Every structure is written in C-alpha cells, then in structure tokens.
Computed example of a mutant assay.
Amino acid sequence: MQISIVIPLLNEQESLIELHDWIAGVMQSNHFVYEIIFIDDGSTDASWRTITELSTKNNNVKGIRFLKNFGKSQALHAGFKAAQGEVVITMDADLQDNPEEIPGLYKLIKEDGNHIVSGWKKKRYDSIITKNIPSKLFNWAARRTSGVKLHDFNCGLKAFKNEVVKNIEVSGDMHRYIPVLAKNAGFSKITEKVVQHQARKYGSTKFGAERFINGFLDLITIWFVSKFGRQPMHLFGALGVLMFIIGFAFSLYLGIDKLYLNPTGRLITERPEFYIALTAMLLGTQLFLAGFLGEIMVRSRKNDTRYTISNKINV
C-alpha cells in the first residue's frame, strides 16, 4: 500500500463526508493505493455513524473508535499502529487541511528520501490575537529548544515514512512534537512544505488558548526527556553531588573554624552556615536518590495502554 491517511477527530460529523470525497478524488486522480483511517476520539455527535456509512461505500475507509476522549496524541498513536502504507500522512478533520497537498507530500518522502515532511501554514485564516501571535511565539521557542528548524510545529498536515511512525511513542500531548521525537530516535531528514490553510467551514475549534500553555510545558518535558530520559542519574545525580559538596564544604569550614580558629565562639548550631550545610546535604541526598529511582524506573518500565478502543472498522 502506498499511502495511509490518519485522521483524528472529535465531533466533526458535518465535515467527514466532504473530506472523504475530497481525499478519495485526489487518490483516484493520482492512481494511489490508499487507506483512510479515521480515529474517533470519543465523539458525542454522529461522527462514528458517518464513518461506518463511509466504510460500507468505500473499502479503503477504516475506523477506530475510542470509548471516551483520550486526546489527539493517543488518537495518532492508534492510527500509526494500524497504518500499513509506505507513507503515512496525518491531517485534521475540520477541512482546514487541503487534501490536494497529499501528492506533493508523498513525493517529498518517496522521491526525495525525507523521513518527515511537515506542513507550514504560511498564510493562516485564524484569529491574529488568539492563535497567530501565540503560535509564532510557541514555534520560536520550540525551534530554539529542540533544534528542529520548522516554522509550524502545530500544523496537522504532515507526511512520514512508515518506519518513523512505527518507531516513536506519541503520548500525553506530544503530537505537536512528533518531528522532535523522530529526530531523537535518529530520523533526522526533516523538511517542511508550505501548504494551503483554509478557514474552518463547520463547527468551532476544539482547542483553546490553554493549548499554548500546555505546549510550552510539554516543550520543557520533551527537552528533559530527550537529554536525560534514558539516564536521569546524569542530571539528578550531578545536581545531588554538587549540593552535597556544597554542604560538605560548609560543614568542613564550620569544623575547622570551631576547632582551630575560634574555639570559644558561638556553638555551631547557632550559626546560619550550619543550616545551609544541613539543607544542602539533605537536598543532595534526595536528588541523588531521585536519579537512582529514575534509573530503576527507566529500566523496568513496560509499555502501557493509554486509551480504550470500543469499535473498529476494517482494522
């Protein structure tokens, strides 16, 4: 199979038929062998019924339905697990991503040898205050922190080699940082393509301003995990040793001062340096133990299921 199109969705019933027909038309005109995988992330409208009806008309349509809303990252994880195409393309279900971009994305993967092609919505039709400005700030921070030089981390329209999606773990709210996760896994051929952005035709966005706050927090998390996730002792152990050395140095100073320099002075416990030394040594011990426990958890953790599937179609 050439292309798998993975589409996570939440309450997008109105757009699904139009989106399917548009994608199917593009696939047929380019003679692609394809599959469309809809992941219903706990919709409360008739989205799943629509997906079921589409699957009866088109055998290339597949569906995965979550028991409740688990989030976009978990939906993408399920879609990636089911995808069989040589090239996997993700897009949103709200018709803001243009299916006409699919052939160009496919070519950049198959012919140019890229691991990932990320869409860049250079011209947007979103609110300047609530989306455009925060998005530019977020993307700047993501570039500086991750080292991945993309203009638009939030664009849902992306293309991947199959081996990329099969070898990365998308969890929490990390869907924004799939290129960063891929880079950390060794898939370094990442480029971007300017894509057409369209105004939302039906319904309203499912993401509020809080997604940018969560995005920055996730950015800190992924920076930490990429640098110290495999060996947390390198961070916590180093900080613990540093704090312990600081505390020991203060203790040594207090001991020498009391024994040789000022034996008739104040008691050691009456001096502020004593409490600095005690606090530093306790913190050092705790940080070292945190690193040690982190190493044990990393080595003993098992893959856990982060979502519950209630129905499947053709998967």
Rank of each mutant, 00 (worst) to 15 (best):
L105Y: 02
G71A: 09
L95A: 05
N60Y: 13
A75D: 06
A78V: 05
H77E: 15
H77K: 15
N98H: 09
A93P: 06
I89D: 03
M91N: 02
K107Y: 08
N59V: 10
V88Q: 02
N69L: 03
D94G: 08
S47E: 03
A93Y: 02
S118W: 01
N59Q: 12
E111R: 05
G119E: 05
N114S: 14
E101M: 07
M91A: 07
G71M: 07
K57F: 02
I116R: 07
F70E: 12
G79S: 09
K72L: 13
S47F: 06
N58D: 10
T52F: 11
S73C: 11
N58P: 00
K72Q: 10
K62S: 10
K57A: 05
F80M: 05
R49L: 14
S73V: 13
V117H: 01
I102K: 02
E86L: 10
L76V: 05
I102R: 01
E111A: 12
H77G: 13
S73Q: 11
A78P: 09
E86H: 09
N69F: 07
E100M: 08
K110Y: 06
V117N: 01
Y106K: 04
K110A: 12
E101Y: 04
F80G: 03
A83Q: 12
H115V: 07
V88E: 01
L76K: 06
G119V: 13
E101W: 02
E101V: 00
F66S: 08
L105P: 02
